[in-house]
Write a protein that binds this DNA or RNA. Structure first.
Lengths: 190, 190
DNA sequence: GTCTATAAACTGATAGAC
DNA sequence: GTCTATCAGTTTATAGAC
């Protein structure tokens, strides 16, 4: 059990930081090598290509999402609290001044290898399905008021959070996601 | 009055297509030169740098937005119709399988020269201000029901449209923006 | 206005030594 | 696992001829 992570994990962590701040096409093996402190050639030992690195990044991100959602489901007792926890993942990212890894990849989708595009779609589908289930449950118990179809509301929240995260860094004013959160939740008030 | 546009306009048109499909960092002068049919060196006669080209792109885009919004205000008689027309600009872009120029730049903001970042902010501020005014007017006449502060709703719509446009290309299912539109408008139903 | 020629730096990637 | 050395191709940009 070592304090410092192994090189592969360090590479994933540094790459995630670069992708969520600069974008997949705007960072290079050189950038990555400098952060981790090895040579660019050594990166190829861990990830045979930049595309495979991107794919590994999205796979880890999606499995972390799965863990977080399972935690929310198990730990929290109201659908409102679960929704708040979900939104909280994105407000945390906003505070760091970064994008969601998936949102960053989605914005580069026109230039990405198919392997990554598939992972992006899986992540988004999972988010929408979880939010939709949360809404359906909350409407059934009377916790939420149904103003639109849950599937539409779920897609709308995911789009608002991802868009908000991308636009937040360009905005002068107050935290953008706080506004997205408020208008979404007030709309559901029973 | 010639049928074919001048080279500068052709360059702007081709660059806009590339930025909204691939992103600012994912297209090169070589790509642009091939589309327009000149050499890369000739591009520098019209735009001294890629940054200046990007800035010119955003300036033209913002002034086109201004024209479109003025047209909506003048031509359309209800706030609902105006909001629909605004949303329509984005559903048109979704049909083309492209991103909004501003959304594309926003996603690359961490790597962009400051001149472009300022233009991105101006475009977003203008969108939010116009939508907010539209909502305030519609609430005053009783056309809309106010579920949240107009400023929050406006920010939320802009974020939802931009996010929806970016995510739409990764999604398998039905048009994402139609869902954003439905849940936003139903929320306003008086 | 557009061209050729050229630059200097960077890109992801490979071969092979240690 | 990480290194050095190297590759072929690309990037934005400049100088100067036409």
């Amino acid at each position: 059990m070592s304090t410092t992570s192994d090189t592969k994990t360090q590479l994933l962590d540094a790459a995630q930081e670069l992708v969520t701040r600069r974008g997949f096409n705007a960072f290079s093996y050189k950038d990555l090598a400098e952060v981790v402190g090895i040579r660019t050639a050594s990166i190829h030992y861990h990830f045979e290509s930049k595309a495979k690195l991107g794919q590994a990044l999205m796979q880890r991100y999606t499995s972390e999402l799965e863990g977080a959602l399972a935690g929310f489901d198990q730990r929290l007792r109201s659908e409102k609290a679960r929704l708040e926890a979900f939104i909280g993942m994105y407000t945390d990212t906003e505070k760091r001044g970064a994008m969601c890894l998936c949102g960053s990849f989605a914005s580069d989708l026109g230039t990405l290898p198919g392997e990554i595009a598939d992972e992006v779609q899986a992540y988004l589908d999972r988010c929408e399905a979880w939010v939709k289930a949360c809404l359906v449950a909350g409407i059934a118990t009377g916790e939420f008021r149904a103003t639109s179809k849950p599937a539409d509301l779920a897609a709308s929240l995911v789009a608002g959070l991802q868009g908000g995260l991308i636009l937040a860094r360009a905005q002068s004013g107050s935290p953008l996601l706080a506004r997205v959160r408020r208008s979404f939740l007030q709309n559901l008030d029973a």
